[in-house]
């Protein structure tokens, strides 16, 4: 399995993406490192191993779609898109700056490869449903991937959308829950616990898989399982570490939405080699 998916290459890419995230945030002076870093392996796997996309033709109709409903993790998405060739890597340094194509939260009208503008939590889910429904209606075989935060699922719209995805049997939709345990004000279970999440999604009619969200082989297995699952959407609950890869950011709610200063960034980059 390890060789089949080129795991060491993926690790190298993931490391580079983490470095880019830190560099972008340092340069921007603001942004969200924690939830960007927890999502890196999933995004890397999707864009480098799983999804049919064409960086030279981002709007290619046959493409698979990814929607980052937790839009504040934009730095992870932008880094992956740049690494994948959707736009030049140097552009990452314009993140959050005036006239940039890389907005504080993803903007489909500005950034090649961004499928939907997100940032207001809960909304990307419904949009993913719509794209998946249209795919079914048109008998197209593209797949729709979605990423949600574990704090995000406190939004009512998420449960409206969960109900609808199961009702319409959207087996072309695969969602990842970035289960990093933290939101802005602290642990998700203390702020407003959505647990037990697996039982909830099962009760809503979803196929549910639990994985280590930093393990490429487990991500792959879960996606393969989702693709084989018929008649219902799959929720992949990915156990992750918020701030993963930077020791002083890991599991610290304070690093949800704070950019590192130069010294902190250098320390982080020294760990990411």
């Amino acid at each position: 399995m390890e060789q089949m998916i080129g795991e060491s290459e993926l690790h190298t890419t993931a490391r580079q993406i983490r470095r880019d995230i830190i560099t972008m945030l340092l340069e921007a002076g603001s942004g969200h490192p924690g939830g960007s870093l927890s999502a890196v392996e999933i995004l890397t796997y999707l864009y480098f191993r799983e999804m049919k996309v064409d960086p030279a033709d981002p709007q290619w109709p046959g493409r698979d779609r990814f929607i980052l409903s937790k839009g504040h993790a934009g730095p992870a998405l932008f880094s992956v898109l740049a690494e994948r060739g959707f736009f030049p890597r140097e552009e990452l340094l314009t993140f959050r700056k005036i006239d940039s194509r890389l907005q504080g939260h993803p903007d489909m009208r500005k950034t090649p490869g961004v499928e939907m503008s997100t940032g207001s939590l809960g909304q990307g889910f419904s949009v993913a449903n719509g794209i998946a429904l249209a795919g079914k209606l048109d008998k197209k075989d593209y797949r729709v991937f979605l990423m949600l935060g574990d704090g995000e699922i406190e939004e009512g719209q998420v449960w409206e959308a969960s109900m609808a995805a199961a009702h319409y049997k959207l087996d072309n939709l695969t969602a990842f829950l970035d289960h990093n345990g933290l939101q802005i004000d602290g642990p998700v279970t203390e702020v407003m616990s959505p647990e037990p999440v697996a039982d909830k999604f099962k009760a809503f009619g979803w196929e549910v898989v639990k994985i280590d969200g930093h393990s490429f082989p487990e991500i792959r297995q879960a996606i393969d399982h989702a693709k084989k699952t018929q008649g219902k959407p799959t929720m992949i609950i990915a156990e992750t570490v918020k701030g993963r890869g930077v020791s002083f950011m890991e599991n610290e709610a304070g690093w949800h939405g704070a950019a590192p200063n130069r010294e902190q960034a250098e320390k982080a980059l020294a760990e990411l080699v």
Binding site: G130, I131, A161
Partner: peptide
């Protein structure tokens, strides 16, 4: 579920 209806409509539009 009006919020989800509006979001779903957005997805339909994205898909053409």
């Amino acid at each position: 579920a009006e919020q989800n209806m509006i979001g779903t409509a957005a997805g339909f539009a994205i898909a053409g």
